[in-house]
Amino acid sequence: MAALRPGYRRELADGTAVFFEARRNQCPWCGSARLGGRLRTTDLLQHKPGVFTLDRCHDCGHLFQNPRLNERGLAFYYRDFYDGLGGDRLDGVFAGRTASYRARAASVRPHLTGPAEWLDVGTGHGHFCASAAEVLPQVVFDGLDRSDGAELARRAGRVRHGHRGTFTALAARRPGTYDVVSMFHYLEHATDPQEELEAACAALRPGGLLVIDVPDPECRFARLLGRWWLPWLQPQHLHLAPAGNLRRRLEGTGFTVLAQEHARAHDAVDLVAAAWLALDALAPREDLPWLPEPPGAVRRAARGAVLLAGVPLLLAAALLDRAVAGPLAERLGLTNAYRLIARREAEKPPAAGGRRQGVLFTRESRLPARTWHQVHDS
């Protein structure tokens, strides 16, 4: 902590405004100017300084961080989360999700026809690939990540090849290489989701499968829990697309959606995660290198007391998640994520729109959201 504190102090010397781009006046998904504030919050996980806003498009329903973090901001807020100080903790969390990883693989199994090469985008340390290989022994897994996690996954034998870098760059180098591409809770982190979908179309062979899991911003928990809903995950989540928006975008990019799943993508942690975030916010801060100074003995004792007093709340929330919210999640509209499984067609459809001043305009932007749903569904 002491060694890292001077570096963070230098980065924060000019304040947090330097970490953001200019505020957008148009929806990055459909180009509409009818925007409204949806959420204003702080970093509830790392507690790095800064305030973050999610805006909602009143035409298409897309939610996005506005103003969005720039490259400097992304580097600052990701640092010590998946690697560094947070590396061991997150690795332990991901390693313990074997059942969830197996369920993801099982969702894809009915759509596979034989041996396949699979690229897991945003693979981290490759724990999903290791678990999925047990469910799908005929599949060979590669992993891609911006960090050195993919290389660590290769050394651990969890993937055949571990690629480091961006998906767009890899797809350009190796077009038509894979039978399956997965993006499990990756697309919401992307600065340009459309580019990632186009990269998937390029990387897949005709007939190949794209599997996407993303948070569902239409989940009722998002409204009921407010800023304590874990999938907001500010400042990391830049885009939160309703399922209908993403389905139509996939169809316009050269895919046919084969399945849309909500219950199987749901992770029953909403209430216990909200309880933890609230307790952690209430308690005095632990020692963190981006804070001006380490906490003293009194603050450390107070933090321990608050968290200990909150144990019954955490247990009750976990019980409700498992016993009530989990089994009834889909029926009550409480599923916190959705999964789309799509097939890449041999030919891409003609573009419905074009890029103009950094905004992707499609036919979605020409009709109000409700009217477009009615036209499309008919």
Score class of each variant (00 low, 15 high):
residue 194 Q to H: 06
residue 92 G to E: 14
residue 356 R to Q: 15
residue 114 G to N: 10
residue 66 N to I: 00
residue 204 L to Q: 07
residue 76 F to V: 05
residue 25 N to D: 15
residue 226 G to D: 13
residue 222 A to W: 00
residue 61 G to Q: 10
residue 17 A to C: 01
residue 110 P to N: 14
residue 175 P to C: 07
residue 81 F to V: 07
residue 217 P to A: 04
residue 78 Y to K: 13
residue 324 V to D: 00
residue 61 G to F: 04
residue 221 F to G: 06
residue 210 L to G: 11
residue 253 T to P: 06
residue 197 L to E: 08
residue 351 A to R: 09
residue 245 N to M: 14
residue 170 L to C: 13
residue 273 A to Q: 11
residue 295 P to C: 11
residue 81 F to R: 02
residue 145 D to K: 12
residue 227 R to Q: 10
residue 362 T to Q: 10
residue 290 W to N: 01
residue 152 L to R: 15
residue 161 H to G: 03
residue 311 V to W: 13
residue 163 H to N: 08
residue 341 I to V: 14
residue 125 H to E: 05
residue 53 T to P: 00
residue 203 A to G: 10
residue 202 A to W: 00
residue 165 G to E: 09
residue 14 D to L: 10
residue 35 L to Y: 03
residue 124 G to A: 06
residue 240 L to Y: 01
residue 267 D to L: 05
residue 376 H to W: 12
residue 214 V to K: 10
residue 115 P to M: 08
residue 372 W to C: 00
residue 319 L to N: 03
residue 374 Q to Y: 09
residue 65 Q to W: 01
residue 326 G to Y: 10
residue 369 A to K: 05
residue 177 T to G: 02
residue 375 V to S: 15
residue 48 K to P: 03
residue 378 S to V: 03
residue 352 A to K: 09
residue 242 P to E: 12
residue 372 W to S: 04
residue 161 H to W: 06
residue 114 G to P: 07
residue 37 G to M: 04
residue 154 R to M: 13
residue 290 W to G: 01
residue 249 R to D: 08
residue 222 A to G: 07
residue 29 W to L: 09
residue 209 L to P: 09
residue 163 H to C: 11
residue 131 S to V: 02
residue 221 F to D: 01
residue 299 R to Y: 06
residue 354 G to P: 06
residue 341 I to F: 07
residue 237 H to Y: 04
residue 107 S to R: 11
residue 326 G to W: 10
residue 154 R to V: 04
residue 307 L to M: 13
residue 359 V to S: 10
residue 104 R to F: 11
residue 340 L to Q: 12
residue 240 L to T: 02
residue 123 T to H: 02
residue 259 A to F: 13
residue 369 A to N: 04
residue 181 V to W: 02
residue 89 R to S: 08
residue 346 A to D: 08
residue 40 R to M: 05
residue 233 L to V: 08
residue 219 C to P: 00
residue 180 V to Q: 05
